[in-house]
Amino acid sequence: MKNDNKPSERNGERPKVIFDGVSKHFQKGKESLHVLDDINLEVRDGEFVCLLGPSGCGKSTLLNIAGGFEQQDAGRVTIDGEEVDGPSSKRVFVFQEYGIFPWASVWDNVALGLRDVPKEEREETVQRTINMVGLAGFERAYPMELSGGMKQRVEVARALAVSPDVIYMDEPFGALDSLTRLTMRSEIIRIWQQEQKTILFVTHDVDESIQLADRIVVLSARPGRIAEIVEVDLPHPRDLGSPEYGVIKNRLYALLGVEHTI
């Protein structure tokens, strides 16, 4: 499975996102926390990759580095060969907590990244994106009037509207109830298939990662290292009861070092 690390060589296409020896320490008082250790990863264009690991393994930190919100100590991240050196609307986050602005309507939130786009094109894009995430009719609503799932749809729409190269999702469905979470997972797969975006998705939920990802990058506990990359070669929609699903699930639980029978 190790050679899955280099999908580019296998497919002969250029990788979209490259993590090259990324390491990170945090200074906590006098203590130095080693959070990420020598992360090497290549993500194909249009690929859905999940970063799976226990709490505190540095998976969110890795995403923040790739988004330009945090600075790594060593190594580099490149997107289409260009080094990441700060936040940009070419790589957009869908946040863990609600990052949409509660003071702005759904429409204004989705239009946030389109300020420099001509009016006609902007309105067309905003409406199309709102329709795509299933929020037509709620354009004038404010986030406080929406349910948790609908707010998260606004976040997704805001990210899609700027047609970014890469979308980063940091446990985006963590605050939702389990049924809404399932709906949002199938929605995100539908949108991903339609838009063919590259998605990096952080989660600690084993099922979520198998339902969504092309490949699952399993990170070990601190310092975060890539323990293994597991390929999920199942077509969408995925059958959660299939034997292949069970095999992958067992493998992931074993890698994470937990028993999944209780």
Partner: peptide
């Protein structure tokens, strides 16, 4: 999160102020 959203979508200067800080 709101500060990061603003940075992510390239808000700065007066726009950052008018669209995020003040509201």
């Amino acid at each position: 999160v709101h500060q990061r959203s603003a940075m992510n979508f390239g808000l700065h200067g007066m726009q950052l102020f008018r669209r995020v800080v003040l509201p």
